[in-house]
Write a protein that binds this DNA or RNA. Structure first.
Length: 546
RNA sequence: GCCCCGGUAGCUCAGUUGGAUAGAGCAGCGGACUUCUAAUCCGCAGGUCGCAGGUUCGAAUCCUGCCCGGGGCGCCA
């Protein structure tokens, strides 16, 4: 990645190497960070503290040499260097450097922050949500949808080729129980033990002709179709578009079926055996405490068998990387699946299983369980109807995927006007208003051309905003690498706050001074684009008017 | 018993893989609307970073042990 920040980082590393001398190379790379507190410069590095132990010289003394070296290398990009605390070097950049940074952001245009992975672009499959088609999409499913979709957007923006997949568990015991439940309702009976009790089951019974008398398997199949239609519609409303809806049942169709082919591959590799009438996979040979069943003694393949066949299918479709987003209740399945993946002979590390913590439904301050079977859950459609897609997605994405989220629908409704998403959107809309006031597209275009030539001084708020914008590519890289889209939500909020401070301190339209208005317009445009991009990565709209 | 996630302000959560005086939103208190959008802004108050050790120049962050909450350990999916 190139840009003012990486040039600066390179300079620090080079200066550090020069001070260390030929055989004093430090093991750890020095950091370049943005200090939290004002007064510690624009950027700070711990380089001197890393060099000191090897050089056998006090850190502050090393810092002195480093400071001289940096001043020499950076020239007029640097205003001054300060040695602080135990040996930090605080770099205060010149206004000229900040203007050049802004120019860099403007030049990158819409692509700013993206393309970080183009040299090693991968074909990525990301499977998420994959909720059983035994009921409507729940609010918890919305968290998976928001997360998976946002991660997909991040990967795409970084340069990867991404396929979004929804795996449909359309066979097995749960589906049979759905069929039995629908049939029972059609007959005006109670659902059987362990069946589905939600009201939607009655609706399905009414909508399926012959539900009371047809074969349960047929009723179940019709029920799944109807529920899938609803699920697809919910996902669409939520702004999530899947490229592939993959049926578990299809893995058992054909001759030989995908499952049989997977079995054959495992057998050929000596990874499976028969015992007690069942077919077993030697997961214990891959670090698991015990082996697992592929085919039951009844001759029926297990869910595990389907999952193995599904992942083999993905490999055969040519993906370099398989990402699955699973609920916390599936975490016991993770090690087993990794073992199976290794047993197939798949490349190590090519499959990532991400565990998403639960969404709890909160009522009167108490956590209630969300049970699809008992029918007491909040649907995603309910949530969206009450607070809207933007607020729902932002709410879900603000938290890290490995923290449990409490959802109090009353509170969510009550507080939806306080949702930080509006603050971010408002900053975006406000900029649109400023640009219109400035004289529209023509004036803005000329401002973008003039701004890089600005040679005057900058206000603190202008410098802070330029630096915040410059941090965006690193945020993208970090959020993508760590599969952490919530970082983008946090960044978007901080950027909006930084812009609002700038708006408060610096009049844009009609600003006094040669070129000042142009620089401020340019900062506004760069901010607007960056906010729009951040919101887009979250799947949230960026309105021009509010 | 073993495994995974969490424990940070009254509440909900961030915390740039070890940095300096731990941050934001909401709630609370006190202020600011003739503005380039007040869905905003400014100020105040609020903390044993679950507990106890350890590692080092330096720990919310890394290591060990313990406590609390959630989840998981099926020929269920």
């Amino acid at each position: 990645m190139s840009g003012p920040l990486s040039d600066l980082r390179d300079a620090v590393i080079a200066a550090s190497g020069a001070v260390a001398g030929p055989d004093g190379g430090s093991s750890a790379l020095p950091t370049l960070e943005r200090p939290k507190k004002a007064g510690f410069g624009d950027y700070a590095t711990n380089a001197a503290m890393l060099l000191a132990p090897r050089a056998g010289v006090p850190p502050r003394e090393v810092a002195g040499r480093l400071a001289a070296e940096l001043e020499r290398r950076l020239g007029d990009a640097l205003d001054r260097v300060e040695i602080a605390g135990p040996g930090f070097l605080n770099l205060v950049m010149s206004d000229r450097w900040c203007v050049a940074a802004l120019a860099h952001v403007l030049e990158a245009g819409e692509a700013f922050g993206g393309g970080g992975a183009v040299e090693r672009a991968e074909r990525v499959s990301i499977e998420f949500v994959s909720a059983n088609p035994t009921g409507p999409m729940t609010a918890a499913g919305g968290r998976h949808a928001a997360y998976g979709d946002s991660l997909a957007r991040l990967l795409q923006f970084s340069g990867h080729e991404v396929t979004r997949e929804y795996y449909i568990n359309d066979i097995g015991g749960q589906i049979r129980r759905l069929g039995e439940s629908i049939q029972a309702r059609a007959r005006r009976e109670e659902v059987p033990e362990g069946g589905y009790e939600g009201d939607y089951v009655r609706e399905l019974a009414d909508r399926i002709p012959g539900a009371a008398h047809d074969d349960v398997a047929v009723v179940a199949e019709r029920g799944v179709e109807l529920l899938l239609d609803r699920i697809r519609a919910s996902m669409e409303r939520f702004g999530v578009q899947f490229d592939v809806w993959f049926s578990e049942g299809s893995l058992h169709a054909g001759e030989p079926s995908a499952v049989r082919r997977a079995f054959a591959q495992l057998e050929q590799r000596g990874e499976s055996y028969r015992a007690e009438g069942a077919l077993w996979l030697r997961t214990s040979a891959h670090g698991e405490p015990k082996d697992d069943v592929l085919e039951r003694s009844t001759g029926e393949p297990s869910y595990f068998a389907s999952d193995i066949a599904y992942h083999l299918d993905k490999l055969e479709r040519g993906f370099d990387r398989l990402i699955d987003v699973w609920g916390a209740d599936h975490h016991g399945h993770v090690a087993r699946m990794q073992a199976a993946f290794a047993a197939l002979g798949a490349p190590e590390g090519a499959m990532e299983l991400i565990i998403m913590q639960f969404v709890n439904l909160v009522e009167r301050g108490e956590r209630a369980s969300m049970s699809k079977r008992r029918g007491d859950f909040v649907t995603l459609d309910d949530l969206v109807a009450q607070i809207g897609v933007d607020a729902a997605r932002f709410f879900m994405l603000q938290r890290s995927h490995d923290t449990t989220v409490d959802l109090d629908l009353d509170l969510a409704r009550e507080q939806s006007s306080d949702n930080p998403v509006y603050y971010v959107q408002y900053a975006h809309a406000r900029i649109a208003s400023i640009l219109a006031k400035a004289g529209g597209i023509w004036r803005v275009t000329s401002a973008l051309e003039e701004a890089p030539r600005y040679s005057g001084s900058l206000q603190a708020a202008e410098r802070t905003l330029a630096k915040k914008l410059l941090a965006f590519p690193d945020e993208i890289a970090e959020a993508t690498a760590r599969r952490a889209p919530h970082r983008i939500a946090v960044y978007a909020l901080e950027l909006a706050q930084t812009f609002t401070a700038f708006y408060r301190d610096c009049q844009v339209v009609g600003a006094e001074g040669e070129g000042v208005e142009s620089v401020r317009l340019a900062l506004s445009v760069a901010t607007q684009r960056t906010i729009a991009r951040a919101l887009d990565l979250l799947g949230v709209s960026a309105p021009s008017k509010m």
